[in-house]
């Protein structure tokens, strides 16, 4: 434990987790309420990115529709809330169950394809749900739906920003814990082995499809959790939360941070949001109005990472311990 702190990765990780753990105290002390909402979004997106990394990074399956689980988790909460079911004890398990089932369904169909086809079919399913969401006139259609936050009476008030933040942070810690165990478990080794050579894994006697389907389903369940949190963060759900752009952002975060590494998605989410928040004002300082075009800087940065730091931010922190 202590030895791990001596490596750049260990030190940075400890620092990040420490700052995240006390973020509400920091933002209060420096009177930066807005930063707490940015922090909350980073934590929620990290959960989604860690869940995407389970199949994309460890499994080598490029799912281009992961934001659909934002939408499924979010809309499950939103629709129940619109019908007066406000208890989180009901909303959350239902939302998780729906996300899990949907993941199992699209997994069962899309995992029969490979490569580009897999990318296209996961995208297609996500777009399908996106348009269904936009067509739900009773639930706001394209404009989305204002919801009341889930109630956990007496236990926690999600309207209180610091409490909600800590809940999200706890969820992130739980997700990271699971992913860390998963990656080095028997299951994780099968998934990782199939990434490098699925024919080989079949020839060893593994029914690879089943394991991939399970991984896809688990990944979707954690994605659904992120969706539940995202809906509660803004007290709002809309089709925009599952647009293909969001799915792309999630892939960018995972690749930026380091595919197939435990903390890469967390690093990636922090870097992504830090750049998104800081580039526009920085460019505006250079010349008024330039901030609008922040992606002109952001894009080439991603290209540089893709060209020179294949393993993402994580790889810049030195070799990983075996």
């Amino acid at each position: 434990m202590i030895a791990a702190l001596r490596t750049p990765r260990g030190l940075l990780t400890a620092l990040i987790l420490l700052v995240l753990a006390v973020l509400p105290l920091l933002t209060q002390a420096f009177d930066q309420r807005y930063l707490l909402s940015v922090g909350t979004r980073i934590v929620i997106w990290s959960i989604a990115a860690v869940s995407l990394n389970m199949i994309l990074g460890y499994g080598g399956l490029v799912s281009f529709g992961h934001a659909v689980f934002f939408g499924i988790g979010g809309y499950a909460v939103g629709i129940l809330s619109a019908h007066g079911v406000s208890s989180g004890w009901i909303q959350w398990p239902v939302a998780l169950a729906v996300a899990t089932l949907w993941a199992a369904l699209i997994g069962a169909l899309s995992l029969r394809t490979r490569g580009l086809y897999f990318i296209m079919i996961t995208l297609a399913f996500a777009q399908l749900v996106y348009y269904v969401g936009g067509g739900l006139e009773a639930y706001g259609g394209d404009d989305g739906l204002n919801i009341s936050r889930s109630r956990f009476s007496g236990l926690i008030d999600l309207r209180d920003k610091p409490s909600f933040y800590w809940l999200c942070f706890a969820a992130l810690c739980g997700t990271l814990w699971f992913c860390g165990r998963f990656a080095n478990s028997r299951f994780g080794y099968v998934i990782r082995g199939a990434k490098s050579n699925d024919l080989r894994m079949m020839a060893l006697g593994f029914p690879v499809f089943r394991y991939r389907l399970a991984a896809f389903t688990i990944s979707g369940a954690f994605g659904g959790l992120a969706g539940i949190l995202l809906a509660n963060e803004g007290a709002y759900v809309s089709p925009a939360m599952m647009s293909w752009v969001k799915s792309g952002d999630l892939i960018v975060i995972v690749v930026l941070g380091g595919m197939g590494t435990l903390l890469g998605p967390l690093f990636g989410a922090i870097a992504f949001f830090a750049l998104e928040e800081s580039l526009p004002p920085l460019l505006d300082l250079l010349r008024k109005g330039w901030g609008e075009y922040w992606q002109i800087v952001f894009g080439p940065l991603l290209v540089l990472i893709a060209l020179y730091a294949r393993g993402g931010i994580d790889s810049l922190l030195g070799r990983r311990a075996p």
């Binding site: 165990r181 080095n184 028997r186 994780g188």
Partner: peptide, 11 residues
């Protein structure tokens, strides 16, 4: 191999 939690490296 639906075993998710135990570390395979010490198995």
């Amino acid at each position: 191999s639906f075993r998710f939690l135990r570390d395979v490296r010490g198995d």
